[in-house]
Design a protein around this nucleic acid. Structure first.
Lengths: 118, 118
DNA sequence: CGAATATTTAACCATCTGGTTAAATAAGTA
DNA sequence: TACTTATTTAACCAGATGGTTAAATATTCG
């Protein structure tokens, strides 16, 4: 089962799928930077947070610099741009303009086939 | 290790993290609907596609209706709205206005501490 | 130097994921 | 009824994920 998650969009969305990581990003956006600070509000061990940080780093969502023993994280939201663009392609669908078309097709299908169940 | 992925945002992002599923959504947006049709372009077994469809369904990204033996899928992009909103919160960061602040803080830190290594 | 602090690495574990093949279920068709 | 078509379910598997604790690695401080 080879699976590298080559695609950067894969990694971005996967990184965002975890609530802890989304919270970490939110903290980063507000300026929190050191691992210990980022870890504090999360009810889990430091190594667990460290792993999350690596996932975010690999996804390109944060950059890390070492200053002595302290690692300082910096949010890098650039990968989110691509994600936003991908999602935006579906805007017209959730905005409802196509719901009407869907409803129409739906009705059409029902009347032409007469076989629906439950 | 309990982990239900309760949060709908979790499920949405997780669903989007797989390229096969993103491709399925793209096909759905263009009107393809039956399982067999959706499966055709993907180099994998029908059960595999069936599983992907279930993931999308659980994430609320598609609705399914049965007409006889045929299952017809319909894109439902509504969950993407929430995802888009989440991502948009970070727009100002990738737009660069905060890159300058980050650069400033960065420089400041360097000059005050004088300890950076590689 | 020795102790304390910041963080990662290692080893381990349970569950999830994404695929497979084989069989089951359901419905249309000859 | 028997065959074919559409799709799911079941059982299985390898590798990824998200957590743990214990130990290692750096760095700072007294």
């Amino acid at each position: 089962m080879v699976k590298y998650s080559q695609n950067s969009l894969d990694r971005t969305f996967a990184a965002l799928a975890d609530p802890t990581r989304r919270r970490i990003l939110a903290h980063l956006a507000r300026g929190s930077r050191r691992v210990t600070h980022l870890a504090r509000p999360h009810d889990m061990s430091l190594p667990a947070v460290s792993k999350h940080l690596r996932v975010l780093e690999k996804a390109g969502l944060l950059r890390r610099r070492r200053y002595g023993r302290v690692h300082e994280m910096e949010l890098d939201a650039k990968p989110l741009k691509q994600a936003a663009q991908w999602v935006e392609e579906y805007r017209k669908f959730w905005e409802g303009s196509l719901d009407r078309l869907a409803a129409y097709l739906e009705k059409e299908r029902k009347t032409s086939r007469r076989k629906g169940r439950k």
